[in-house]
């Protein structure tokens, strides 16, 4: 099992203490300037317990997640390092995991990744040497058994808090909770879900998750985020893989005057947070505010989640 010499991460500590946890996504820059990362992180760091560094989300090229994590740990922020299976094979991924741990990165989110066809380089070669569950299992092996997938020894194992993604809003709905069980068995300790805009569907998903007893084994953070406008909502649900936004939310934004739409989007987001936070088995929220980082702090503040637990 997990080496007891390992210390908990701040994010892990908050979850274990039973406090409602908050993570947020940092929009990766298209720039070689570290200041752009720090500017975005500065807004997020005070209001959340972990900052997700995305791995070329939507298959669009950005600064790499490992480099963002390195910049963040350098100044004492706590990153959640996202690794997708799209761009790297098992050799590169295992090397990156060791490197990340050496840089002080502790939280790892293992995801399959959007296909290259969704992004700005649709002609790229998609790798998918691992799937997300195999990636999780391999990371757990590196941590718990101090060895690579090949069986070769690692002298100092990486100290990792392992996470995975879940999308309760995509078919086959009835199998999604069972697939979560596979992820937990493979090593997932926390889960960050896809955007939740359909609370009823999420409640049903959580009921099935509780039936399987998974809520006792894994911390679940619900993905939420403010929609900037009805156009943004239409774009997201048609172009971003896996995002489901019910008509009634798009209609509500459409009926709102253009200038007020961003405010309405924030309001919808806060209403959803208010509903999901009391569902049994929900341990926190994961806020994804694409290019609206300034809204994250407002949402956290106005939802009454401040101050955040003090970092040790």
């Amino acid at each position: 099992m997990r080496n007891t010499n390992f210390t908990e991460t701040q994010f892990e500590r908050v979850l274990k203490s039973g406090r409602f946890a908050i993570t947020a996504e940092l929009n990766p820059p298209d720039s070689a300037d570290p200041e752009e990362v720090y500017r975005a992180a500065l807004i997020l760091a005070g209001v959340c317990d972990g900052i997700n560094a995305v791995d070329a989300s939507g298959a669009n090229c950005h600064m790499s997640s490992l480099s963002i994590c390195a910049l963040l740990t350098k100044v004492g922020y706590e990153p959640v390092y996202q690794i997708s299976c799209r761009d790297r094979n098992r050799i590169a991924i295992q090397g990156d995991i060791l490197g990340a741990a050496a840089l002080g990165v502790r939280n790892l989110l293992c995801i399959t990744g959007d296909d290259v066809s969704a992004g700005d380089h649709p002609g790229a070669k998609a790798v998918f040497d691992f799937d997300s569950i195999q990636l999780l299992r391999t990371a757990r092996k590196m941590r718990d058994e101090s060895m690579y997938l090949s069986g070769r020894k690692i002298t100092k194992s990486p100290d990792l808090f392992l996470g995975a993604a879940a999308n309760p809003f995509a078919p086959p709905y009835d199998w999604r909770p069972q697939r979560l069980a596979k992820k937990v068995a493979a090593g997932a300790q926390f889960i960050q879900t896809q955007y939740c805009f359909d609370v009823d569907k999420f409640k049903e998903y959580m009921r099935q998750v509780r039936d399987l007893g998974l809520h006792d084994l894994v911390y679940i953070l619900v993905g939420v985020g403010p929609l900037r406008s009805h156009r943004a909502a239409e774009f997201m649900r048609s172009k971003v893989p896996g995002v489901v936004i019910p008509d009634k939310i798009v209609e509500r934004l459409k009926k709102t005057p253009k200038k007020e739409q961003q405010k309405e989007g924030k309001l919808i987001c806060m209403e959803i947070i208010d509903e999901v936070k009391d569902i049994e088995g929900v341990s926190g929220i994961h806020i994804m505010a694409y290019r609206q980082e300034e809204l994250v702090s407002e949402i956290v503040l106005e939802s009454g989640f401040l101050p955040r637990p003090i970092k040790k």
Binding site: T112, S117, D131, N167, A170, P171, R179
Partner: peptide, 26 residues
């Protein structure tokens, strides 16, 4: 298209079709 061995990715469309090949059932 992602040669997944352990279940579907999160990109499955509402009609049950593939994220990568919209005309193909997942």
């Amino acid at each position: 298209p992602k040669t997944l061995r352990n279940g579907p990715c999160g990109g499955v469309r509402l009609n049950g079709n593939c994220e990568v090949k919209p005309e193909m059932k997942c």
